[in-house]
Design a protein around this nucleic acid. Structure first.
Lengths: 343, 343
DNA sequence: CAGGTCAATGTAAACGATTACAGAGGTGCG
DNA sequence: CGCACCTCTGTAATCGTTTACATTGACCTG
């Protein structure tokens, strides 16, 4: 069925060793011989068997990517970032996504071992402890946005810092009572953003924080509207833990005739592409997702090729405040390409 | 470094053959022996080497997924659909995305061969012709939303039918002059939607079609606004080839004080999650993306396990018209969970 | 011209699994 | 009791590569 190196060798009247040398560019081979081999390989559509190769070289040139169930924009951007860098370095990507429970995730860790050279893990379900137990000693792993032990390299987006910056911005615009619309409590991005909100509020001596439960989906933003308008002493601004919820809320406000930002300021987090096209354009925090992915791939590959017992890396990528008009102040400005970036 | 089957065998005081039999559940093995082997395997954290295994079994239990550069929502949903089905059947996913040019795509086809059992290809860049040339005879491939020869299984979303249905709906609401905001001309989804628009317009004897160039991005919707308002005899409705452009356009209208749907009706395509949360909620065509992915995986796996020279499959998945208020008629209804589904 | 070096190629031993085949021991049946 | 048959396990061949080592000339040098 499949054509092997042996057939190429016969076709070019040389030994398999010479074929291998030509195709891998190692060892000295006469130019004419090399040409003949390459021609034969092309004619036969020869492609080396990855398994056989990895058996002897002890490399798979494949990176494993372990992801939880996560929403649209983030997922694709991250993969894109990883893929672009990995491919450029000659690595493939073995992806496994949408794990719902812990047992499933851990099973995948096991299944991936022996097929990949290293692992990029972005999964609240997989505890670092379980990782260590299921992987051989010293197996290269990069943790992304995951509460992870000191055992592995890890990369994080500065959710905390971004949230602090946003709250400060809102306060600087004169907003007094700022509510926070939370994400899922199990999600680390969500909890870090919450922590940033609390920190920044405390820093300015505002203890009148108001926190509303949410789950990162549009509908929970939509539903938060009632809660926001309920009590007396109601807030003048909301900071949503992500853009989707902010947009859901925006929609609810619009239906109720509440003007944004005049009656109520709204801010989001993530800066998804659509954020600048809602009405009014949404002030948000831009997260470098693709960059996060690329950096994860970079750190992992560096780890593969370097001496295995080096110091663990731990990095945090900065976010960027993007001011549009949903928080006031700049409402009358002409729409620019991307809002104004600070930071 | 890595623990092999030999070490497990030694640990359990049996031969490698017996270990293999136990771990693969083939052949008769004494219960006590099996237990001892399983214990040993667990203690040593043994996982079989995928390469070695695929060498002899001639299977990789891995599916290749080849994707072009594509936007957020679609990408992740599709992968999710594929992944869920594939994993359930015990297959892994080797993903390669964001190919910009044809040469790159074809290179990936070659690289993947020898690592995967079959291929799911969703790439306008890869011509079926090139696929045939770079793959062994009879290699299982499923083409998704790709203009593909009769040589492979293929799956498509009924973009044409969905567009026809939408135009009919708009006409039934009394809209006379309906403009169409196109997607990228190289994209097959885009051209099929355009074809549907033309067909449905012609069917009702309206030759006054108006077609505006676009690229599926929000900004091109935003920019289309000028063109729409320019001439005299201006349209009363726009059908955008996807939701992102529809939302960009909505934003532009809102800035100019043009009311939707009173002054101008807007419809989109895709029914992205956010579509129901913009103002007004967007009438759109829902596309079963995850289902498309799952079905692709299903067809491919069926092809792998079945007799190889069976008839080619060619399927089209139905879309679903989702009526909200951006085209009028139902503007005053309370917002329901998902609009009203027809079809 | 003997001996050493070097370039170009071939031979064969790994790598880690699966599995055909064989052997050992037990059981049933004529 | 002898033979066939079954169950359980081991031995060794095999898959398609890479690569250490061997081999063969050609060339250089003293």
């Amino acid at each position: 069925m499949s054509v092997t190196i042996r057939e190429v060798a016969r076709e070019a009247s040389v030994s398999v060793a010479t074929v291998s040398r030509v195709l891998n560019g190692k060892g000295p081979v006469q130019a004419e011989t090399a040409r003949r081999i390459r021609t034969a390989a092309k004619r036969l559509h020869y492609v080396p068997h990855g398994g056989a190769r990895s058996l002897i070289t002890r490399k798979t040139t494949t990176l494993g990517v372990l992801l939880p169930e996560l929403h649209g924009e983030f997922f694709s951007e991250l993969i894109r970032g990883i893929d672009v860098y990995a491919r450029q370095k000659g690595y493939h990507l073995l992806v496994s996504s949408s794990h719902s429970d812990r047992a499933e995730s851990e099973e995948m860790v096991r299944a991936m071992r022996g097929r990949v050279d290293g692992l990029i893990v972005l999964s609240p379900d997989v505890r670092p402890h379980a990782l260590k137990a299921n992987l051989p000693e010293g197996f290269p792993v990069v943790l992304v946005n995951t509460a992870g032990g000191a055992a592995f390299d890890s990369l994080t987006v500065d959710n905390f810092g971004g949230a602090v910056e946003m709250v400060r911005h809102m306060i600087s615009l004169g907003h007094g009572r700022i509510a926070f619309l939370q994400g899922p409590s199990a999600n680390r991005d969500a909890t870090e953003r919450l922590r940033g909100y609390r920190e920044a509020m405390a820093e300015h001596g505002r203890d009148g924080t108001m926190e509303i439960a949410g789950n990162f989906r549009e509908e929970s933003g939509y539903e938060a509207c009632r809660r926001l308008l309920a009590g007396k002493n109601r807030p003048t601004a909301v900071f949503a833990a992500n853009d989707s919820m902010a947009i859901g809320l925006l929609c609810a406000f619009q239906e109720k005739g509440i003007r944004v930002p005049q009656d109520f300021a709204i801010a989001g987090f993530d800066d998804i592409p659509i954020a600048r096209y809602v009405t009014p354009p949404l002030t948000s925090v831009s997260v470098p997702i693709a960059e996060l992915g690329a950096r994860a791939a970079q750190v992992l590959i560096a780890g593969l090729e370097a001496d295995p017992v080096r110091r663990r890396r731990r990095e945090t990528l900065a976010t960027r405040l993007v001011v549009r008009s949903s928080c006031g102040e700049s409402g009358s400005r002409p729409r620019s390409a991307s809002g104004t970036a600070y930071g």
